[in-house]
Amino acid sequence: MTIVVGYVPTPEGEAALTQAIAEARKSNTKLLVINSSKGDALVDNRYAQEPEIQTVEDRLATEGIDHVIKQPVRGHDAAAEVLDAAEEHNAEMIVIGLRRRTPVGKLILGSVSQRILLEADCPVLAVKA
């Protein structure tokens, strides 16, 4: 069994990671960190670069959590990547970070979190930054 966390280098992402570490320690399970990019723009600030991933890696190592970090770039959106990973590893829980959004912003932009909440087969823990 594993816990899957959708990580992005933002306050929401950090909040999700912190919560996921706590959950993983509590149930003593493996933690799977997913940070993906669709790879369809020249710049994607939600895709963590080398130093940021190293920080996450160090943090998980010092906390002594059994973990795997994956950074798929396959042209799928973040929701699909997290859901895929959850299914593949038979996850017991998905942890995601949420940010505040106005109803209009939601309408225009769609939402990764919403898709994960609706389509996941396991419990989803949503954390506010």
């Binding site: 990019s37 790879g39 020249l42 710049v43 994607d44 600030n45 895709y47 670069q49 770039v73």
Partner: peptide, 8 residues
């Protein structure tokens, strides 16, 4: 197309 996103 460049596939790997760059970081600004």
């Amino acid at each position: 197309l460049r596939r790997t996103p760059l970081h600004i």
